[in-house]
Design a protein around this nucleic acid. Structure first.
Lengths: 255, 255
DNA sequence: TCACACAGCTTGTACCAACAAGTTGAGCAA
DNA sequence: TTGCTCAACTTGTTGGTACAAGCTGTGTGA
């Protein structure tokens, strides 16, 4: 027999109750002192158990209010819809998607000139430290922070298309603007990874403990070289990315 | 002035030192008692700060040894490579990929009959609770648990292709086996999400605190309906998924 | 030389105490 | 009725103590 630590017993019992649906009617958990009495454990031990569930993303706590079972509502994100002239994705896709879902979109926007990091330099095939243009979006759904999107353009492209580096919005969309300068995106390379958020990301996305972020890096190519690199950061618990590949005539959309 | 809690001060200072590369030569952090003296804080407070970094995935601890900065080594996973007759992916792709990377692959395998969950039923377009065949793989790289892969086949398909439900391996690969029975996969639909692991997943993948899992669900379709649903679970910190879309002649592979 | 015990380090678990700070509702005062 | 104060709850922070348990090197005994 290896006796489980008491705080794990607490966590396991509560996790079981949660997955069994005990808190579906009212998501509020018993208070620390109630649990302390129930499990004959000190408040610290109960807190250790609760903290385990928090880092698992199962519950969240707020001072003065107590612990609650977290509810997810997943947002679908179709990533294989090709971005091109007839189907621009820049910003508009986000607005239309969110509006279509009956939610209210909102975003802030800024433009910066930055030296390329190792990560962006490798993808844009420019020297690390060379100048890049960053167009940065902070997006909200119903005033809840949803994602950040940082698109980096290589310096040579900003010279050929100077409005990229200007602070204002580009009304016709960057894809169209670039195409008018004979730079067309014909393919892209997507990378997806997940990790725990940095403090900066936690702040921007208002992420509490136990929620990972998904990182989606899309490098866009002309027929000869990379022309942009978009890094999108999502809350992992609220988003699901989709790719459609091949012939999907056997699929109807009523998932 | 809003004075930061002391444990956050500890976490911020150590996080800063880590990102500045102070522990690159030797990943070992000072002991709790040393940090306690340095920050003039109790051991409990220092532990709270360290725990924050653990849940952020930055460090890990082991009893008797101390705290260490975690190192990542990312494994690339090309998901857009189409699985079909000329390019089967079943199991073989994993082995060849891992071997190509100079690592040693190893996997365990089992077959089960299971009632469909809401999740698999919706994707396979069968009734929840109806019988499905699960073919389950637990995969290791250099004896480190790497991923689990659960492929569910609908009951009607298992009747048409009985070897799916038999415990043994299918030497020619399931894709070929199904094609010989005139069931060909012509398209698939991928869904990717991230969350913190369940205790079961932590156990199977030997995941410590602060590491999310990536869930990759691939539903394969024949020209008329879904024929399988594969749910792959990865360690988020060790894997990156890639998709190539469109014309990538402008991309060379030396990323 | 070799094997084992043990001291001295590390983190893990568990308890106690006290106060700070956020939330809510009761109840009083205008 | 309206608005405010405040008590009573909640979790958050910080300190303390004690012992368990894992790891490593020293040194003793065979």
């Amino acid at each position: 027999m290896s006796p489980q630590p008491k705080y794990r017993v607490v966590a396991d019992a509560l996790r079981r109750e949660i997955t069994d649906g005990k808190y579906e009617s009212s998501p509020r958990l018993p208070s620390e002192s109630e649990l302390s009495a129930r499990f004959d454990a000190s408040r610290n031990t109960v807190r250790a158990g609760l903290n385990l569930l928090v880092t698992e993303g199962l519950i969240s706590s707020s001072q003065g209010l107590g612990y609650e079972v977290r509810s997810h509502e997943v947002f679908e994100l179709n990533a294989s819809r090709f971005e091109n002239l007839s189907f621009p994705q820049n910003g508009d896709a986000y607005s239309t998607d969110v509006t279509a879902a009956g939610r209210r979109p909102h975003q802030t926007f800024r433009v910066e000139m930055l030296p390329a990091t190792a990560y962006t330099a490798a993808r844009l095939k420019v020297d690390a430290g060379s100048t890049t243009v960053l167009r940065f979006c902070h997006r909200f759904v119903d005033d809840v922070p949803w994602s950040t999107q940082a698109t980096y353009y290589p310096g040579w492209l900003a010279e050929a298309a100077p409005r990229l580096a200007e602070p204002g919005d580009i009304a016709e969309g960057t894809t169209r603007y670039l195409a008018d300068r004979e730079i067309e995106q014909v393919g892209y390379f997507d990378e997806i990874s997940a990790r725990m958020p940095t403090p900066e990301e936690s702040r921007l996305l208002e992420i509490s403990a136990g929620v990972p972020v998904m990182l989606w890096t899309r490098t866009g190519y002309s027929d000869t070289r990379p022309i942009r690199c978009t890094i999108t950061t999502f809350r992992g618990d609220l988003n699901r990315m989709n790719y459609e590949i091949g012939d999907l005539s056997g699929r109807d959309e009523t998932l």
